[in-house]
Design a protein around this nucleic acid. Structure first.
Lengths: 141, 141
DNA sequence: CTAAAATATACCAATTTAGTAGGAGTTTGT
DNA sequence: ACAAACTCCTACTAAATTGGTATATTTTAG
């Protein structure tokens, strides 16, 4: 069970967008440099972020990205969904192979994997970008 | 973030050992057949389980495996440690690269990853093999 | 002696991870 | 008008991991 580098990359990149007070977009180049993330790799991640509606892009010179929503509305769950190619906690043949699963309505294995999944998602849902950005310099949002 | 098939395989295999009332060992062949797990693959998993001290082996004909401890002492965390080749939740350059990390004593990123790790481990520690075995047929242990 | 069992070691195809490469399209400062 | 600075898009790649196979050796019951 591993967490890819993507979650960390995205988290820090989004924080940089969220922490910026100016209304101008920030470029991939700048974020990559500040956060020590390979530029081309970060580009791909932002492509996903845009498709998922977490950021907006401004084309052309002086272009870049801005958050599509206020930090407190961006949960870690949303970030994880993009960062991790697949989130598979329900690892149980009784769940994967539905026919077997249906035989046991209250299968304890299934219950365990579902509970585990819920436990993780509860944590991810209860943390947002705002937790990271306004930790020391208090501000609204 | 994925959970490999191993955790499911081991969980069901160990349950079969734990549920067995006889004092005789159970062979890999039998478990593999009952649980629909590739025999050779299960063999490798049991090798790890033995090395970790979760099961004991009996060699020769009529040999097989028995639990090395009572079910309630076998936590899901112990199983996960064997099932997952690597458990990496602390995915943060501020943690991986110690020099950067030391610069921020109360880094919010680090805190998040550590909290996440603790959250998961708390869940895994609070479930044992006994939860699966004696769900319906109540019995001591 | 032989069949059934664990043990040990090596191999393998497919997939995933963490990138890199090269350019095409868009906008802006000068 | 034009070059620089951007995003956007597609493809490629090396290394590691995953989920398994294959083959042979050792141990023991009957």
């Amino acid at each position: 069970m591993k967490i890819s580098v993507n979650a960390d990359y995205i988290l820090r990149a989004m924080c940089e967008l969220g922490a910026d007070k100016t209304e101008t977009p920030i470029s991939i180049s700048k974020i990559a440099e500040n956060q020590h993330i390979p530029k081309k790799y970060l580009e791909k991640l932002f492509h996903k972020l845009k498709k998922a509606g977490l950021v907006k892009s401004i084309l052309g010179k002086n272009g870049g990205y801005i958050l599509a929503d206020i930090p407190k509305n961006i949960t870690m769950k949303r970030i994880f969904k993009i960062a991790e190619n697949e989130v598979r906690i329900h690892n149980c043949v009784n769940i994967k192979k539905d026919k077997i699963c249906d035989l046991f309505g209250d299968c304890t294995f299934k219950k365990f994997w579902t509970d585990f999944d819920n436990h993780i998602n509860f944590f991810l849902d209860s943390h947002t970008l705002a937790d990271f950005i306004f930790a020391d310099n208090s501000k609204n949002n």
